[in-house]
Every structure is written in C-alpha cells, then in structure tokens.
Design a protein around this nucleic acid. Structure first.
Length: 560
RNA sequence: GUCCCUGUAGCUCAGAUGGAUAGAGCACAGGAUUCCUAAUCCUGGUGUCGGCAGUUCGAAUCUGCCCAGGGACACCA
C-alpha cells in the first residue's frame, strides 16, 4: 500500500526524533493539483504546534529524510509548509512488476487479520416485494462484505427473516383470505391488511406449486400453521430470487422464529431478571434501556404475554455474539435509524462492547420519474419495485448506482435516466475500458505481428522491466495502478464502497486518455509491432479493473 | 417538540480524520476516426460550498444558532 506504507515510514522517522506523539492528521497523499507533483505530505504543518517550530523549519528536516527514500526524487518544500515529491521511475517499474506477480490478489491485504464479522443487511419483512431502497442496502452490504474480505476479514452475510411477530401473522391472514377466495370459498380480507396485490404475489406462486393442499373439505385452511410457514417461505424465496438477480446472496438466512426454540425465550427472560435488566409495569415486562442510552424503556413482553419484536432483538444479538463474531454490523435504512440507540442499549446490557457493534445507516432513495418524485410505500398498492428496476437497467448499473455514492447521501434515482443505456451511465465507461483492452489483445492474437503468440500477452510471461515512461499518461497510469491497494484499504476503513467506485472511474479515465493518444500495436511502414512497455501497462490495467470490478461484483465484459 | 441524514456548478454527485487556485460526470458549444471499439478523447466556465457567528496560521470540512428538504420517534415490524 503505497500511501499507507510511506506514511508509516514517515511516522516512524518522526516519532521519538522530532515528536513524542505524531498527530493522526499527518497525511501522505496525492495533492489535488497535479502541478504540485506526485505526492505530498502535510507533516511539517501538523507537527508545527507539537514541536513549536514553524512549519518551514520542520519541513527542511523532514524533506531531508524523504530525499533519502529510494522511492522518491525531487523533494521540495513549498510556502505554508507542504512537502511535495515525485516517484522515481525505477521504483514505479519495480512496484508494477510486483503488481503483475500478485495478479488477482493485487489490492488485497490482511489488515483484517481474520477478524470475524457478521454483516446483516436488507432483512426486509417477508410481507411483500422488495422496494428500491432494499436494493441500495443489498448492494451496499454485498460490496462491503467483499471489501472486508479483500482486507483480510472473515464475513458472514446474514438476512434476518421476520417470520414470528404480528406482521407475519397478518400477512398469513391476508394470504389465507386470497387463497380461499381463489378456490371460490368465502373469505374476509383483513381491513388493515397488506395491499392484496402485494400478497397475491406469494399466494399465486403457492397455488402454482402446491395447489389446494392447504384446503379442507369445508373450504377452510386445513393446517393454518403450515400454511403460514409455507406462505412466508414462498415470499422469502421470491425475495431471495430478486436479490439474486442483482447477485446479492447470503450465507445465512436467520429466522426470527428459530429464536423461540424450546425454552430459549424463558431462558433469556430469566437471565434479564437475574441481571435486573427488566421490571414489571402495567402487566408488561419492560427493559431498562434508558440505563444504556436509549430514550425510553422498551416493552419486552406485552401485557398479553406475547414477546415483542424488541424481545427478538435481544435474543438475536445474544445469538450473534454467541456465535463468536468479533464484530457485528447492521446496515439499516434511515427509516430505521431509531433502532440504533435500542440496539446499542441491548449491546451494552449484554456486555457486548461498543467497538464490537456497528450500525451503518443508509439514506433513502427517492425515485424520480418524468422529473417528479414518486413515493414508494409498500402499503400503497402498485409501486415500482426493485425487481422492476433490475429488469429495466440490469444488475451492473443497479449495483454501480447504489454503491457509487456515499450511503449518507439521500439519492435521487431517475428511472428514465437509468433506463437509458447510454454513456450517461458511468458503469459503461468503466466496462468499456475493460472491453477495449480485451479487444486489443484479441487483435494481437488474431492478426498481430509474427512471432507473437498468446503466451506473449499473458501477464505471467511479461517482462515488466520493459516498462518505460515516455509520456505523462503512461506514468499517470502507473501511479493510478499503485494507488489501488490504498483505495481498497480506505474503502474498508470508512465503510465506503464509493471510494472504490470513484477509484475505478479514475483508472478508466486514465486508460481512455492514454488509449486515445498512444498505440499498443504500432504500424510502421506496413509492418506491425507491439510496444512491449505499453502492453505490460495495459495488462496491469486490465488486471486491476478486473480485481476492482470483482469486488463491486460488476461484470467485466470482453466486448461491448 | 426531540433525534438522525442531507444542503457544493443548470442536473446527479465526489471532496476519507481541516491545508496550497473547490472537482468529476451529465447537459450545452466547437473539434478529433485512412490506424488497437467514437459507449472514447481534446478545447471551452459557471460556484455568496444553505445563512450568520465562533475556533484556527488556515474551514466546504470542526463548534453553536438559524433556514430548507428527507426520515424516525408503538405493548407494529
């Protein structure tokens, strides 16, 4: 990791020599403006208050040190106290050779040290189709999982199925009404039920696969409990199918009902009483969540004796901790942000450290249609669902749109725009870079210069010492390639897949610019030759594009 | 009323723990293809970084107060 390694080295030099503690804010980074050089550090400025010397004074000491590094050349200090420097070509070439050797592993690191993460996302109630927002959490969770794995963590992707409470019961009730109605029997549809068109998705499917097996002779449900189980599973199947359409998959579908297996609820209740974490009031059992930072106490057992959803939350978190995860991450939609305090309260009460529990809030998605915002409420009949979106624009675009912007940003999703398969969609720009490179290789293979075989354009057989930088865009590409591992690391540190998306866009841009100016297959006086240096460079670009696209799980097409 | 997120170019958004002249794409105008895919490239420019104070050598970034948009505040999930 170029930036991180250089920073670490600088910190090591400074600590004990110039200052006891090196400020966190010390950075080695690319300067915004290219004219300042390849890299830059603010070391002198952040040290100034610590050392009580002027930045310029400190910068001369530090720039002397940096000048000794074999990676860099041309170190200079500038006005307020910045130290700017360039990367030496010899270093770039050696580093690129190493990149080529690592191939599909390039960019990964083991900073995660095998730490076990449970990442829960989507977890939409199985009471209807997924909406657009779920697509965002799905893409976010999936890519974040990939990012964590690329950084050496172990990840369990989990979906929590709410199949136990009153919402599931209500859904089953609605479904039963439609089911009986379908076979011509009288049925009463619950007044406050889910929209029938949402429920019928599952009912139609159930009838298709299982026919009337839940119907008894009197025109009633023969086995209401199995019907409920079946109808919910049918909905879950449908949800899983939708998510699979965008390549979002889970390691564990965790059923809320499984928390209530033999005596588990009584066990946790006893435990909570022993710890004095609950008390009785108004015939209900309350959890002392205010004692752990929640704004109010929460009911665990209703006056009727039924456990609440909050009871499930307690057991679920306990279960996760019991499965030995070092870190438990929830991705919640902004409409559930009120959960954060509750969850952390449970965590504290159960002795799960704050550093172990993390909640990522994803802001909502607005749908824009013909310039107008469209409300997306599942309770209001026919809406534009995630399934519709994936069918309209394809999984690559969906995934890129959702992970290309910060999850803190409420996004506007313009359906009309997303439908257009045009250059307005940046994902094509990135994929096109990959397709172009493939096309070059195909050309070399098919009608390339004599004496050049397929093996010669294999990354394993390339002599990277052939690389030379004859112009700015070649060096620019090299630098961009070497910054990839930092992008992977930073996107993990910040739980921000969009850092990776942004990086990809930049690499693609570097490539397209290069491609337009310089040729890999050169033709001189009718004879064709391949520029070995550029071939090597482009092979690496392809590798990094592939690696990054794999993390985003967006396809890298060979032709477009 | 309380809490969370957001407010940056005409539009969609970057700007990762404060740093050097605030960026990209789209849209708009013009140009580039006898040659590896023009889904590309090159050239054009616009900003009271929502507002007002404060902290700092230095603020789009941190703090406070306002304004605007979205969301959340059940013995529903």
């Amino acid at each position: 990791m170029l930036l991180r390694d250089l920073r670490a080295r600088l910190v090591k030099y400074i600590s004990g020599r110039l200052a006891e503690d090196v400020p966190e804010s010390l950075r080695v980074e690319e300067p915004r403006n290219r004219k300042f050089g390849d890299l830059s550090t603010n070391a002198a400025m952040v040290l100034s208050p610590v050392v009580r010397k002027s930045p310029m004074e400190i910068s001369s000491v530090i720039s002397d040190e940096i000048s000794d590094w074999e990676e860099v050349e041309n170190v200079r200090t500038v006005k307020p106290g910045f130290i700017n420097f360039d990367l030496r070509e010899k270093f770039l070439i050696d580093a690129l050779a190493e990149t080529g050797r690592q191939k599909e592993d390039y960019g990964t690191n083991d900073s995660g040290n095998g730490i076990r993460i449970n990442l829960e996302y989507v977890s939409s109630n199985p009471t209807g189709d997924l909406h657009i927002g779920h697509g965002r959490w799905g893409a976010l969770g999936d890519v974040l999982s990939n990012i964590y794995m690329a950084n050496g963590y172990t990840v369990c992707r989990e979906y929590y199925v709410n199949d136990y409470g009153s919402q599931a019961a209500k859904f089953a009730e609605c479904a039963a009404a439609l089911y009986l109605g379908h076979f011509g029997y009288e049925s009463v549809y619950p007044e406050d039920g889910y929209p029938p068109e949402a429920v019928s998705i599952a009912v139609d499917r159930l009838i298709e696969t299982s026919g009337n097996i839940f119907l008894d002779k009197e025109g009633r449900l023969s086995e209401p409990e199995s019907f409920k189980k079946k109808i919910i599973n049918t909905m879950v199947e449908r949800i899983a199918e939708t998510l699979e359409k965008m390549d979002v998959r889970f390691d564990n579908w965790f059923y809320e009902s499984s928390l209530y297996r033999k005596g588990n609820f009584q066990r946790i209740l006893r435990f909570l009483r022993e710890k004095d974490l609950v008390y009785n009031n108004d015939d209900a059992v309350w959890f002392r969540s205010t004692g752990f930072g929640d704004e109010k106490d929460r009911v665990v057992v209703r006056s009727g004796g039924e456990p609440t959803y909050f009871a499930s939350d307690i057991m679920y978190l306990e279960d996760k901790a019991g499965r030995g995860f070092d870190r438990i991450i929830y991705i919640l939609g902004a409409d559930h942000h009120g959960y954060v305090d509750r969850l952390t309260a449970i965590g504290k009460a159960l002795g799960i450290g704050e550093e172990k529990l993390m909640v990522i809030i994803g802001q909502l998605v607005n749908i824009i249609k013909d310039g107008m915002a469209v409300r997306m409420s599942r309770r209001k009949g026919k809406v534009y669902t995630l399934r519709d979106l994936i069918d309209d624009v394809g999984k690559d675009a969906v995934r890129y749109f959702f992970t290309g912007v910060s999850c803190d940003t409420p996004m506007d999703f313009d359906i009309g725009l997303a439908r257009r398969r045009s250059n307005q969609n940046p994902v094509y720009y990135i994929q096109y870079a990959h397709a172009r490179i493939e096309s070059i290789f195909k050309k070399i293979e098919q009608e390339g210069p004599g004496g050049l075989s397929r093996d010669d354009i294999n990354i394993d057989n390339i002599d990277f010492s052939d690389i030379e930088f004859k112009n700015r865009s070649e060096k620019g590409i090299a630098k961009a390639l070497l910054l990839y591992p930092d992008a992977v690391f930073n996107s993990c540190e910040n739980n921000a897949p969009h850092i990776l998306s942004q990086y990809l866009l930049r690499l693609a841009a570097e490539f397209h610019q290069f491609y337009n100016k310089h040729r890999i297959i050169e033709v001189k006086g009718g004879t064709m030759s391949v520029n070995r240096s550029r071939l090597a460079l482009v092979l690496l670009v392809r590798q990094v594009l592939k690696n990054a696209l794999k993390i985003l799980n967006i396809s890298a097409p060979e032709k477009m």
